[in-house]
Design a protein around this nucleic acid. Structure first.
Lengths: 244, 244
DNA sequence: GTCGCCCTTTTGTCAGATGATTGCGCTGCG
DNA sequence: CGCAGCGCAATCATCTGACAAAAGGGCGAC
């Protein structure tokens, strides 16, 4: 048994950092599923095979598989094994699944889907926020907006931008909108590469953000909705013209 | 040790059916978290305590906890234990979390949030479906609509109704909309109790559904959007007047 | 009083054994 | 020759027990 040697594959994988074994396994297996290595309906290798592949114990494999089961990526039954669930059962709005999904096919198509999704929810979220926000929530929004303007590095700016949009979702007063924040985070982390091209784009975007902030502050739902639409149209142009 | 006795608590819990131990544990612990027994930031009992509480092995407890970690309900670290994550990290759009959430506080508020959410996404989904649907997807929509009309029991009708709305989401051509189907399913399964009051309500609702079907079939996105809005307004009235 | 070390607690990981479930092939009968 | 029933075996499900690693808290030295 090669079990006694200092584990090859995991040592290689551990470039990811210090995450635990079951997390690494879940990540690796989940990625392979979403990537399409095992199409929906097919049977995965059994637990023993996985544990041999990764030089991990069967317990660790099982815990990883349970995590994927919790995300509805697969279901397992005795004697059968683990079967990949049909795609429409996958919880694509889960942070991890989204990350796997984003990294597998072409970024472009993924970004377009996310962007379209933002068009659906963000204008309404802003309109709701305009009428339902608390003062604390307004503070959060305003602060993020200010920090966006004051940011010097692109990273700082993107961070503040993300916080701005998440704060609006939270202020919408609908708990179900909050989890959609992962989409926005994902969008921004991928959009990151697109907007290096500085210039008046940034100024224009900042003005648009300030307009949203103002309309939410002054309780003007309709105007807030329109302002968000305008901002998204602006972002659309960035997505369309492609990465740097 | 009472470990040798024929397990009391799990035997009682097993009225749920034949689900596996880890699933039962995840369900029970998840419910308690969402219900608020352990507020965000607090530390859960350790694995040994859980395993004693439920007369299950630590492995089973760990697998259950891994499932809850996958849903971002908690995070665990050595020596600390398992800490409940802040609510905004919870994946409320997960099927299980949604079910726990729906059963904990008052149904009413939950239903309102879901209904509001439907107002945001379903009109747009229908509009997208009108322009992007494939013929097969259109068949699915039409069939569900027909089956709704032909249904005799309330259960059949609700089932067809659900399929109708899910089919529209699928036909929207945006993968990210599909997972939101769990919201609709949840809404219908809870709305179930509200609409026993039969009458012309059903006829009116059926006509509204047929109108949506027609507008999607004839590629009229604007009209489809309006039709869905009308149907949702109708459902709103049902929700407002409360359960039977 | 403060800094740093040790120690205990809790999760993380592993190995091995047994039980439960069920698809599949085999065998025997019609 | 076909079919039905049965047993086998593969696979997950569960349990047990042990050790490693991390990290907060307490204790001692200075």
């Amino acid at each position: 048994m090669a079990r006694k040697q200092p584990v090859v594959s995991r040592t290689r994988d551990s470039r990811a950092g210090k995450s635990s074994v079951h997390a690494q396994l879940a990540n690796e297996i989940g990625l392979r599923i979403v990537r399409g290595d095992y199409p929906p309906g097919s049977i995965l290798p059994n637990e023993a095979q996985w544990s041999e592949t990764f030089n991990a114990s069967r317990s660790a494999v099982r815990e990883a598989i349970k995590m994927l089961m919790a995300k509805s990526l697969l279901a397992s039954r005795p004697k059968i094994g683990s079967r990949v669930e049909p795609r429409e059962r996958w919880n694509l709005l889960d942070r991890d699944v989204l990350a796997w999904y984003a990294s597998s096919p072409d970024r472009e198509a993924f970004l377009k889907a996310v962007q379209e999704f933002r068009h659906i929810i963000e204008p309404e979220a802003a309109a709701l926020a305009a009428t339902r926000r608390t003062d604390e929530q307004m503070d959060e929004i305003s602060r993020a907006c200010r920090e966006m303007g004051a940011a010097v590095t692109l990273e700082e700016r993107t961070g503040a931008d993300t916080r701005f949009h998440l704060a609006i979702l939270r202020a919408s007063g609908n708990d179900l909108l909050v989890p959609l924040g992962v989409l926005i985070e994902s969008a921004f982390s991928h959009l990151f590469l697109y907007v290096t091209r500085e210039g008046d784009d940034l100024d224009a975007a900042q003005k648009l953000h300030e307009s949203i902030e103002r309309n939410i502050r002054l309780v003007r739902p309709e105007a807030a909705r329109r302002a968000v639409r305008k901002l998204l149209a602006n972002t659309d142009k960035v997505v369309e013209r492609g990465p740097e």
